[in-house]
Simulated assay, not measured.
Amino acid sequence: MATAENLLVVNDVHAGYIKDLNILQGINFRIAPGELVVVIGPNGAGKSTLAKTIFGLLTPNQGSITFKGKSITDLRPNQIVQRGMCYVPQIQNVFANLSIEENLEMGAFVRSGSLENLKEQIYTMFPVLKQRRKQRAGTLSGGERQMLAMGRALMLDPDLLVLDEPSAALSPILVASVFEQIKAVNQLGKAIMLVEQNAKKALEFADRGYVLESGCDRFEGTGQDLLTNPKVGELYLGAAYKET
């Protein structure tokens, strides 16, 4: 339910990639300021579609999206960025031919003035990026690329960071590292929407979570409530438990 405390409210949203063929079937979703909310579900459930719709890459066919109390339902991504939201896609999330430092500077494209303090904040959070700041992004490991992608998004000092499956195709060690960085970003007061395939690990540190199925929000609760919900465990966490 929408309240004055919500940072983001998605209300009865239907959306898809083809007209009159909706992947999202009436999604309701919300995030409070500073909250870390995880979205899980089987392949094809609509997780990434929800993230793209929130960020304006897809326009809802029905329903509304409100951010910081104002409608963003029909806005384009560049307009949404200017309102304080950033999106990190699963793939192609860095400029491979540019250096780490140049990637960070590209992330602040709508800001004016010196970027040095912002870059130093990112380097403090991700020391490996400072060590390799002149290195081309295309030479980084998968985990380092995810750190750079998050760092570039943080150059805009957003109120909400939307992360689309940041642990995909990473080794277990790198997954743990990326999750630690996500927690660190959240502890700075940034709200995070985390679309994640590694359901168990994500729910362990989430404030709340949503379980999507066939384009609908089937379950909602705290991370711990969803972890201990037998129906959620049977339907959605079985594979995750086997992997860990």
Results as ranks from 00 to 15, higher is better:
residue 88 V to I: 04
residue 80 I to D: 12
residue 97 N to F: 05
residue 118 L to S: 11
residue 103 N to G: 03
residue 91 I to Q: 12
residue 46 G to Q: 08
residue 115 L to E: 06
residue 78 N to Q: 14
residue 92 Q to W: 04
residue 112 S to V: 13
residue 77 P to L: 08
residue 119 K to P: 03
residue 105 E to I: 04
residue 59 T to M: 14
residue 79 Q to G: 08
residue 54 I to A: 05
residue 127 P to C: 01
residue 78 N to K: 09
residue 81 V to C: 13
residue 115 L to N: 09
residue 81 V to D: 01
residue 120 E to N: 13
residue 71 S to M: 10
residue 103 N to A: 04
residue 56 G to D: 01
residue 45 A to L: 11
residue 108 A to I: 04
residue 44 G to R: 08
residue 118 L to K: 14
residue 74 D to N: 14
residue 81 V to N: 12
residue 114 S to T: 14
residue 119 K to E: 01
residue 112 S to R: 14
residue 59 T to V: 11
residue 118 L to C: 11
residue 44 G to D: 11
residue 98 L to H: 09
residue 77 P to F: 10
residue 93 N to H: 11
residue 73 T to R: 10
residue 57 L to H: 13
residue 44 G to P: 02
residue 125 M to H: 00
residue 68 K to L: 06
residue 60 P to F: 00
residue 109 F to I: 06
residue 74 D to F: 09
residue 102 E to Q: 07
residue 118 L to V: 09
residue 63 G to R: 01
residue 97 N to I: 03
residue 55 F to P: 03
residue 59 T to E: 10
residue 75 L to G: 14
residue 86 C to T: 02
residue 127 P to M: 00
residue 87 Y to D: 10
residue 108 A to W: 04
residue 79 Q to E: 15
residue 90 Q to L: 07
residue 100 I to G: 02
residue 65 I to G: 08
residue 97 N to T: 13
residue 76 R to P: 05
residue 110 V to D: 03
residue 115 L to C: 01
residue 123 Y to P: 07
residue 58 L to W: 10
residue 57 L to I: 08
residue 128 V to E: 05
residue 51 A to K: 01
residue 112 S to D: 08
residue 72 I to C: 14
residue 89 P to Q: 02
residue 60 P to S: 08
residue 96 A to E: 12
residue 67 F to I: 06
residue 46 G to K: 10
residue 117 N to P: 08
residue 46 G to N: 15
residue 101 E to H: 07
residue 71 S to V: 01
residue 129 L to T: 04
residue 83 R to Y: 01
residue 112 S to K: 11
residue 66 T to P: 02
residue 125 M to C: 00
residue 57 L to R: 07
residue 70 K to I: 00
residue 47 K to P: 12
residue 98 L to M: 15
residue 78 N to L: 02
residue 64 S to E: 13
residue 92 Q to M: 00
residue 68 K to W: 03
residue 72 I to Q: 14
residue 104 L to V: 05
residue 97 N to P: 09
residue 74 D to A: 09
residue 130 K to A: 06
residue 93 N to D: 03
residue 77 P to C: 13
residue 113 G to Y: 06
residue 109 F to D: 10
residue 74 D to V: 10
residue 88 V to Y: 00
residue 123 Y to A: 05
residue 90 Q to T: 07
residue 95 F to I: 01
residue 59 T to R: 15
residue 87 Y to W: 11
residue 114 S to Y: 08
residue 100 I to F: 04
residue 50 L to G: 05
residue 81 V to K: 15
residue 124 T to P: 13
residue 87 Y to C: 05
residue 70 K to A: 11
residue 125 M to K: 02
residue 96 A to W: 03
residue 67 F to V: 13
residue 117 N to H: 12
residue 52 K to F: 03
residue 83 R to K: 15
residue 55 F to K: 02
residue 100 I to P: 01
residue 93 N to S: 02
residue 125 M to G: 12
residue 82 Q to F: 15
residue 71 S to K: 13
residue 87 Y to I: 06
residue 51 A to F: 07
residue 87 Y to P: 00
residue 126 F to L: 09
residue 109 F to V: 01
residue 107 G to W: 01
residue 87 Y to K: 08
residue 109 F to A: 04
residue 90 Q to K: 13
residue 116 E to K: 12
residue 66 T to A: 06
residue 79 Q to W: 07
residue 51 A to L: 03
residue 107 G to M: 05
residue 86 C to G: 06
